[in-house]
């Protein structure tokens, strides 16, 4: 029968096409952690795809370099005083470098849902199913033409691994956040971190994410539970309100630093060895501000893997004590 012939014929399609899909399907986990896992993988030194920075070009160079081998991921501070990235944020803060994009067969490149706009890469952060009003003005249409078969000349604005119209997100800076919307009313949020300079926690959590006073509840999950997708997400009770408010206040005061500069003890390989909790602020607009908490008072926004905030330890521990 012809249907069977079709499925037999599918056996003859090129291995590189099968492998590209295999990478997608095997790396991606089911459940709510999907987007985070992708980003975490990228940051855990696995940075197969997003490597390097435009060190030579510093600010102002918006061209993406598909010819990069993507083999390394390094960061450096930028600014007139040449910050070292040694953990001292200095007066100008830390800058997340622009990323080079290299998508090659057998890499994990296809893991990222992203598109390029104004030379910056917007990476998928989360799906929101019941707040279509988040989508604002039409910005452009992503072609979805990038994968491991793409030639470097095609790495340009509006290219990406996903296709579709993208829009501003109402109330948010389009240089930081854009979205795609779908017929079923769902919205997919994309966050750009390329070239972002952050000094204090408030630069991100207030100026860009508008956290204070805009969340309806906070939930949390242990590291172990999150990693294993066990789904035991608990809600912080109203009694925790003061502790939570103090946590946010101190988080906003904390300095940003590079994740790679977080001090580790013997036997610890990277910041993930310090991770203890995931904290989810459910925002009234439908978004979630997902924070990752690390022993010692380090806090990271899940969409900005290269940097974290070092906050006041007593305020941090007060919250952790409640979670325990």
């Amino acid at each position: 029968m012809k249907q069977e012939l079709f499925f037999n014929a599918m056996d003859y399609i090129d291995d590189d096409m099968i492998e590209a899909v295999d990478i997608l399907r095997t790396k991606k986990k089911s459940g709510v952690n999907r987007a985070w896992i992708r980003r975490a993988s990228a940051a855990a030194g696995v940075c197969i795809i997003l490597g390097g920075l435009f060190a030579a070009n510093r600010f102002g160079n918006s061209k993406l370099h598909p010819e990069s081998d993507g083999s390394d991921h390094e960061m450096m501070a930028q600014g007139t005083d040449g910050l070292s990235g040694s953990g001292d944020t200095g007066a100008l803060g830390v800058t997340i470098p622009k990323t080079e994009i290299s998508i090659k067969p057998n890499s994990s490149a296809d893991l990222l849902a992203f598109f390029i706009y104004e030379g910056k890469m917007y990476v998928q952060y989360e799906w929101i199913y019941d707040h279509p009003e988040l989508a604002g003005k039409y910005v452009g249409t992503a072609t979805g033409n990038i994968d491991c078969f793409t030639s470097k000349k095609e790495y340009e604005d509006f290219a990406g691994s996903v296709s579709g119209d993208f829009y501003t997100v109402n109330g948010f800076d389009p240089s930081f956040m854009l979205c795609m919307k779908y017929d079923d009313g769902s919205v997919s949020i994309y966050v750009n971190d390329n070239g972002l300079t952050l000094l204090k926690g408030s630069d991100l959590f207030e100026d860009r994410l508008h956290l204070s006073g805009n969340y309806s509840e906070a939930e949390y999950q242990t590291r172990h539970d999150w990693v294993n997708s066990l789904g035991n997400i608990k809600t912080l009770s109203g009694e925790a309100a003061d502790v939570l408010e103090n946590f946010i206040t101190e988080l906003n005061k904390g300095n940003f630093m590079y994740t790679d500069d977080v001090p580790l003890e013997d036997g610890q390989n990277n910041i993930y060895d310090l991770e203890i909790y995931h904290l989810f602020f459910r925002m009234s607009n439908g978004m979630t501000v997902h924070l990752r908490l690390y022993d010692g008072g380090y806090v990271r926004y899940a969409a900005l893997i290269p940097v974290c905030v070092k906050m006041d330890v007593s305020a941090f521990d007060a919250l952790v004590d409640l979670l325990q």
Binding site: A9, I13, D14, V21, D147
Partner: peptide, 22 residues
Amino acid sequence: LGELLNAFLCSLKPDERNSFIG
């Protein structure tokens, strides 16, 4: 038929090709 499918799949956008193969 596999050869024809190969040529066809190469002509598709990545998200179309990936979803079809998936």
